[in-house]
Amino acid sequence: MSRLRKEQLVGLLMVSPALILLAVFFLYPLVNSFYMSFHKWPLFGKPKWVGLDNYIFMFQDERFWESLKFTFVYTLTVTPMLFVVAIGTALLCNAKAWGTTFFRSIYFLPVVMSFATASYVWLWLYSEMYGVIVYALEFFGFGGENKNLNVWKTGTSSMWAVNAMVTWKFSGIQMIILIAGLQAIRDDYYEASKLMGASRWQTIWNVTLPLLRPSIALALILSIAGSIQAYEQFVIMTRGGPSNSTKTLVMHTVDMGFDYFKLGPAASLGVIIMIILFILTVIQLRLFRKNY
């Protein structure tokens, strides 16, 4: 057996646990769900093949388009917020200075709080009458002279309020991915850049960021996938309101499946979300692979 052949075999063997797990606990249910999406699927009894009916039903549903639109707006706004905070804190924590370990721990703290609890606590902080954040905002002149600020008053303000919570909660995840990437960059690159007389910003721009590409790709893919699948924060904090203006795709899916008991259309919604995200992810992988 040639060396290459052996290496190929060893490689397959090593990747097989991951593939088996994936096949059983992901691909199999996924195929099932795909199958469901082409059927009228009652809770009991025989499913009936309906072809593309579920998809047609869904596309004709205004609620689907509203939620799709909102989900995109949310993703487009929250992703840059998360990324800017994450890269900023990652660079701060990667500096060779006293206290970085401490800062890193603090920035990571919100991540480990359970999402539901965090949503409830922020809901409380945002409370019109007893919310500390609202006091602070009113102090800075938001809410006019009557001091009757309520962040849930409009769809847009609701979204920004949730964005702030999500940024607080999740930038730590991206930060830690970026830090792992930063630590993998060897010091000689910085030394070389320094010898060439580059300023700190130039070094970040020309050395750090290009070398950080794979980690940035991962951080962005995760954050976009997470935002397209946003659910808990909106269920708890806005309940999709006011007047359905903050209903996300996954909320709509859960409503379909578990509140309206329409399992077929719910399955087709899952498939659609998957296709959207697959396209977005492939695009991102392409973008970040260039010149790398």
Partner: peptide, 13 residues
């Protein structure tokens, strides 16, 4: 792939 589909969509299968 697993990050591309919400977990709740696969709950029943």
């Amino acid at each position: 792939l697993p990050i591309l589909i919400p977990g709740i969509s696969l709950i029943i299968p």
